[in-house]
Write a protein that binds this DNA or RNA. Structure first.
Lengths: 252, 252
DNA sequence: GTAGAGGTTGACGTTACGTCAAGGTCAAGG
DNA sequence: CCTTGACCTTGACGTAACGTCAACCTCTAC
């Protein structure tokens, strides 16, 4: 009154490999083993198997299933905690989808956001005079050479990063969180890290006055509408400036 | 003008192990390698890294990221197809959560569903006369012995499976799909597989008249209110009967 | 005897690294 | 010169749940 491994696999709608695996990890042992090593399963084993497969379809991991089957763990309790995990994953995916959509929108540049041509990823040829005046000749030379030596593709990528950062700033400013919130401070951290990628600026030079530089940049974003545009205008730039100042004072 | 592996990891908010991994798989090579094998990264490498990390945060896999960075794949296009995948996963989780909730409800027995005491997982002591009459003495003996030899826990599990199957049948019947739909036919398949777990019945005996047995069972579910109750009453049982008959004719 | 179906035990591949393990490199201090 | 300690290197295993060979054994049927 028992079945071979292939038979029971077919009956239960799974594969023999799965049954061997369950045997290996001790989740479901065959009810009988032939002298030749063949595995045979009887009725109760089939019941166990189908119970396993049912729980598996619900997304439980094999250790959790074993817990339910062979320890004193309540099935309903296990399913409830599993449900909680599923809900978290569900939320995480929703947030990630929102992020991806936001990024796509920003990269496509739907006109409403991003005055990309104005900011243009710190295009030093466009802002030469200001750059020299604000950060010195050496900084300009280093930054300019760096920018010129990038391939068109690298430049585009740089611009994309700038766009993404700007979009995230606007989203944060628009969501009503405070400049000293964890979210805004994390953006500030990203912002500073991004600045480190520009050679010649104090953030990229050992011993540079990063704090003063970052704080000053924030002021510039507010004062200069060409930069403010990248953060949703003056109100957005003000948010960025405040967040950056708080970050600089606390971390730089 | 470059950084050691630890420095750049700290700047970008990741770990040195990750950078070594990216080097291994060719996703991001260090801009320079010391005579001692030390890895060093410059500005453009940092830009690349941050771009990688940005895409990674959005959930893209490393191969997809490499595709975007080093092949002619459009970032927006990649993100769009990624978004599609995210949406599918999101839906899948939603369905799985519904399934889990359904199972929990059924197992807790909220009274509205499941006359579990009546069906009682083919309790052969309870239905002795009918079982003998309908399926013969041998079938009764085999089934009774099988049932008696189950531990209390195994019996409970068997009942749980019965409950789950019944709940799924009711859900299907209530959703308005046809008895010959893929969903209903899959339930029929599960139903027959479940029957195979009961020794002594034709489904479990080689050469048994499975087709006639399954079809007859379906009729019994409709005719006997004690069984019909498990499928949501007569209308539900009728759905089950029709689905089983179609399945039996096509597959048994 | 042999073909063919079905069984067995390894062992690698899958995602993106975390986590040792063993050992080389480098600057600072005794 | 030697040591200490921080930092670097290259393996290699582990993770979830099997799919997929590979090499070899077993049983039935013709």
């Amino acid at each position: 009154m028992d079945w071979s491994i292939q038979e029971i696999a077919r009956i239960a709608g799974t594969t023999s490999r799965t049954l061997r695996h369950y045997d290996d990890i001790g989740l479901l042992k065959p009810s009988r083993t032939g002298h030749n090593g063949y595995r045979y399963y009887d009725g109760p084993a089939l019941v166990q198997l189908q119970r396993i497969l049912l729980l598996r379809e619900l997304g439980l991991g094999l250790p959790a299933i074993a817990e339910v089957l062979y320890r004193e763990t309540d099935t309903v309790k296990a399913l409830n905690s599993h449900l909680e995990w599923l809900a978290q994953e569900h939320d995480r995916l929703a947030r990630q989808m929102a992020s991806v959509r936001q990024t796509i929108d920003t990269m496509q540049g739907d006109g409403k956001y991003m005055a990309q041509d104005m900011f243009d990823g710190f295009d030093h040829t466009q802002y030469k005079d200001e750059v020299v005046e604000r950060w010195g000749k050496d900084a300009y030379a280093a930054g300019d050479s760096w920018w010129r030596n990038m391939s068109a593709d690298e430049k585009q990528q740089w611009k994309d990063r700038v766009s993404k950062l700007g979009a995230d700033w606007m989203a944060a400013a628009g969501s009503g969180v405070a400049p000293d919130s964890a979210e805004a401070q994390d953006l500030a951290r990203r912002h500073v890290e991004w600045l480190r990628g520009i050679p010649g600026t104090p953030t990229a030079v050992p011993g540079g006055d990063v704090k003063g530089y970052v704080t000053g940049l924030g002021e510039m974003y507010v004062a200069d509408p060409r930069f403010a545009a990248n953060y949703g205008g003056e109100s957005g730039a003000t948010f960025v400036r405040d967040a950056l100042r708080i970050y600089a004072e606390g971390n730089l």
